[in-house]
Every structure is written in structure tokens, then in C-alpha cells.
């Protein structure tokens, strides 16, 4: 019997040496080591042996089983490595399968970024109404009827007929309309960022649009200062551009702030040396800001002298155009997918 077992082993080894594919190897494994395999067959014959010989033969069969398993495993490895060595012609330059994925409008992408930055600084982000009353858009912001500063905000008015009993209606010219809207409902501390669509009654060309997007930010508390405003703006710009941005602060006039300032950003295109983007000044006007005017607090019904606050406004579309170097503002509302697909 011992002879028979050894022959099986030899035969198996012989067969393995001639195998060159995994499937045949698998079949061979079944033939010898399987549940109905040759070794099993022999093992069942062990009962025919005298009891004295049984452990020895059993041990031998087990030994052979282990050996064969090892040899098969080695063979498997060598087949794999042989297969991987065979050079196949493979053209990785063929185009990928078409996967249709949509694109967010660049305004949305920057808006999302801006939202995250202000949320991280503890500002609540709001949007507010686009059809607005003259009161919230102008009067409550210290711009009574016939205030000359209204010239800066050319306005679309709604034809009111007799049906609408509200005060004079218009399309908001800035997101500052939310200042008094929020303040009259809530008490400080307030840290609000309003991002939304605004409208200006002006003809459209390469750099002018009647439909635009503005980021308005304001903070009100008992001790808000200009230094807080500058900190907020600086960190906003640094976060947006992901590097240290140099700013320049100048006096500016907006009826709803006092003091009023304008903030310029050093031109990133030329590093401040002067180029066509910054009209050779090295600086780009991006933002109007200041400390909220006492008249605005009065409009909101806040007690006199109790609170101070800052407010600022940035053109979102201007940021978008600067970030992506878009040379004509009209692309933004073109609805042209050749434009959208670039972002």
C-alpha cells in the first residue's frame, strides 16, 4: 500500500509539472485532493490494513497531502507570475467611457466657498427678498427720497397699479436691504451674511450687468469696531484666495455707514506692479464698508447709542470674474453650456 501511495504522489508531481494553466491545476487538485479524490480513496482503504500499520500509513497520506498542497500552491504562483509576464497590447490612450456629470455655475461655486468662510467665522447666511420696498432698500438706510446718493443705485421699479397696497416697490439694488429687516426682528449680537441677486437699471456691456450678486455682511453688538471689520475682511480674502492678500483701506462714502471706507485688494495678476486688470494702479476696488450709521439703528428701532456695528458689501460676480479670469460679465447669464462646462 505504501508503494501505491508513493506512486500516486509521483504521478501527481509528474502531472503538475506539465500543467500550464490555472483551470487544469484546479482540476488536478480536485482529482488528487478533492472530496472524492485519489488520496481520499486510499484513506478509506486504510480499514483493510492491520491496526498496527494504520497510523503509519495515515501519517504518510497526510504527509503527501501536505506536500502536494504545497507543490500545487507553488505551481499556482508560478503560473500567475508567468501570466503577468506575458506582454499584451494595451492602449491606455483610448478615451474613457463617457460619464455624464453636471457642472455647478461658477457663481454657485464661489457662493458656496464664501458661505463656508463666513459660517466658519460665526456668521449666519441669509438671502432675503428680491422684490423690495423703497423703505428697506433706501429710506431705512439713511437715504430719504431725493437723496443724491441714490444715483449710485439706478433702480428698477415695479408697476404697482392699484392692486398692491405696499409702499413703493422695486428690485433690490443691494443685499443691504436685509440690515434693517434682520435688526427689527432680532437683538444683537448679530453676525449676518446675505448673499443674493440684485438689480441695477443700467445697460449691459462687457463690464456692466443689470443683474448681479452681492455679498453683504454685518455684525452688531455693544463693542464692534472698525478693527473688527478689517479683521473680518482680511480673513475672508485670505481664505478665499488661499494666501495672504494685501489690502488698502481708503475713505469712502455710503449713506448707511459712518465712518465709511473702501477696501482695495492688491492686484493678484501683477502683484501690485500695475497691469490691465487693475488699470495700472496695482490695486483693485472690491469692497465698500463702514460702521453702521446711527440712523440705520434708529430705523431698526434699537435704543440710541447702545450698539455699534459694521457692514460691508462685495460684488460676488466680480470675485467670480477675477478668480476665473472671465473677461466679459455677460457670460454669467448666457446660459451657454460651453461656458458652464469649463467650471
Amino acid at each position: 500500500m505504501e508503494e501505491e501511495i508513493k506512486k500516486i504522489k509521483e504521478k501527481a508531481i509528474e502531472e503538475i509539472s506539465q500543467i500550464s494553466d490555472l483551470l487544469s491545476l484546479e482540476n488536478l487538485k480536485r482529482k488528487y485532493l478533492g472530496r472524492k479524490g485519489l488520496l481520499r480513496e486510499i484513506l478509506q482503504k486504510i480499514t483493510q490494513l492491520p491496526e498496527k500499520e494504520r497510523p503509519k500509513i495515515g501519517k504518510l497520506i497526510n504527509q503527501i497531502k501536505t506536500d502536494l498542497e504545497k507543490i500545487i500552491e507553488e505551481k499556482k504562483t508560478s503560473i500567475y507570475s508567468l501570466e503577468s509576464k506575458v506582454e499584451k497590447i494595451f492602449d491606455f490612450t483610448l478615451p474613457p467611457q463617457k460619464i455624464f456629470f453636471g457642472h455647478l455655475h461658477p457663481i454657485t461655486q464661489v457662493k458656496n466657498e464664501v458661505t463656508e468662510i463666513f459660517q466658519s467665522m460665526g456668521f449666519e447666511v441669509l438671502e432675503g427678498p428680491e422684490v423690495e420696498t423703497d423703505w428697506y432698500n433706501f429710506e431705512a438706510l439713511n437715504m430719504p427720497i431725493e437723496h443724491p446718493a441714490r444715483d449710485v443705485w439706478d433702480t428698477f421699479y415695479i408697476n404697482q397699479k392699484s392692486k398692491i397696497k405696499n409702499s413703493k416697490l422695486l428690485l433690490r439694488t443691494h443685499t443691504s436691504n436685509m440690515q434693517v429687516r434682520v435688526m427689527e426682528k432680532r437683538k444683537p449680537p448679530l453676525r449676518i451674511c446675505v448673499i443674493g441677486k440684485c438689480f441695477r437699471h443700467e445697460a449691459t456691456d462687457q463690464t456692466h450687468e443689470h443683474t448681479l450678486y452681492q455679498i453683504e455682511g454685518f455684525a452688531v453688538d455693544e463693542k464692534i469696531s472698525l478693527a473688527n471689520l478689517i479683521y473680518t475682511i482680511k480673513n475672508f480674502l485670505n481664505a478665499l484666495y488661499k494666501k495672504e492678500i494685501k489690502i488698502r483701506i481708503r475713505p469712502g462714502y455710503f449713506p448707511f455707514v459712518e465712518p465709511g471706507i473702501e477696501i482695495d485688494m492688491r492686484c493678484e495678476n501683477c502683484q501690485g506692479r500695475g497691469c490691465s486688470v487693475c488699470k495700472n494702479s496695482g490695486w483693485i476696488e472690491i469692497l465698500g464698508a463702514g460702521m453702521i450709521h446711527p440712523k440705520v439703528f434708529e430705523s431698526a428701532g434699537y435704543p440710541k447709542g447702545k450698539y455699534t456695528g459694521f457692514a460691508f458689501g462685495v460684488g460676488l460676480d466680480r470675485l467670480v470674474m477675477m478668480l476665473y479670469k472671465i473677461d466679459d460679465i455677460r457670460w454669467l447669464h448666457s446660459g451657454d453650456l460651453r461656458f458652464i462646462h469649463q467650471f
Binding site: 456629470f101 453636471g102 428680491e130 443689470h210 446660459g335 458652464i340 462646462h341
Partner: peptide
């Protein structure tokens, strides 16, 4: 879902 976003005039 493969949608592109547009911004239109109001």
C-alpha cells in the same frame, strides 16, 4: 445626475 446649472435673468 448630469445636470448643468444655469443662472438666468429674472
Amino acid at each position: 445626475l448630469g445636470f448643468d446649472e444655469v443662472y438666468n435673468y429674472s
